[in-house]
Structures are given as structure tokens and as C-alpha cells.
């Protein structure tokens, strides 16, 4: 998880982590989830050349998900993030690469 300093309070992070774990289990059947937080310091994160309030959720998921399953996973994370943090729809970007992807 990459978050901009001041945008996602620390006390919300356990709830986010729990939501992500639940979605991984429900949608992907994956119960072993590891989450790390990287806080981009104020004045160090930009979007389109302007100071950013956008969070990026980036992770690896089991190989072989069909398009629909991956979309449900991504949408589940995005919806949970917005519900918990109050972020706008365009303030969270979620991506899930195949575990074995080496691109």
C-alpha cells in the first residue's frame, strides 16, 4: 500500500487490512495475506505533476484468475478503501499482478 502522508490515518489501517484479507479470501480463496504500508512524505508524491492525495494498492494474486474474478477483486478492494477512508473514487488505484508475472 502506498499512501500519501496525512491521507490515511494509522488507526484506519487495521480495518483496511482486515477488509483486504476478507476480500482475498472471499474472491480469490487466498487466506495468506501480507500487507506493507509505504507512506509517501508530504511534498514527495505527485499525480499529473501536482501534489497527490491518491493511494495505490498494489499486490500479487494467484495466477490464472479470469477477468471477472480479477475485476471483482479489484472493485472489492477499491470499494472497501473508499468506505473506510472516505476517499473519492479516483483517489484509490488498485492493481493485482499474477504471482508469477515477471514483467
Amino acid at each position: 500500500m502506498f499512501v500519501q502522508e496525512g491521507c490515511v490515518p494509522e488507526d484506519l489501517r487495521p480495518g483496511i487490512a482486515a477488509a483486504v484479507e476478507g476480500i482475498c479470501l472471499d474472491v480469490l480463496g487466498a487466506g495468506d495475506v501480507s500487507i506493507e504500508w509505504t507512506v509517501v512524505a508530504r511534498g514527495y508524491g505527485f499525480r499529473g505533476g501536482k501534489p497527490s492525495t491518491t493511494s495505490l494498492v498494489r499486490g500479487r494474486i494467484p495466477d490464472g484468475c479470469d477477468r471477472g474474478t480479477r475485476a471483482r477483486f479489484l472493485m472489492g478492494i477499491a470499494d472497501a478503501w473508499r468506505r473506510i477512508t472516505g476517499a473519492a473514487e479516483d483517489e484509490v488505484i488498485v492493481s493485482g499482478r499474477d504471482w508469477s508475472w515477471a514483467g
Binding site: G45, F46, G48, L56, R58, G59, W99
Partner: peptide
């Protein structure tokens, strides 16, 4: 690509000469 797609973050190096892939593997 639209300009709003472009995300840039500056992070301090830790001296190890390596950084984890942003998706957490490798």
C-alpha cells in the same frame, strides 16, 4: 495517456542498492 494517470513518488534510498517491486514480489 492522460496526465492524471502519471503518479510520481520520491522515496529515500536505504543504501541497500535494491528496492522491492511495487507489487511486493521480487
Amino acid at each position: 495517456a492522460p496526465r492524471s494517470f502519471v503518479q510520481v513518488a520520491f522515496l529515500n534510498t536505504d543504501g541497500s542498492g535494491e528496492v522491492r517491486d511495487s507489487h511486493g514480489q521480487g
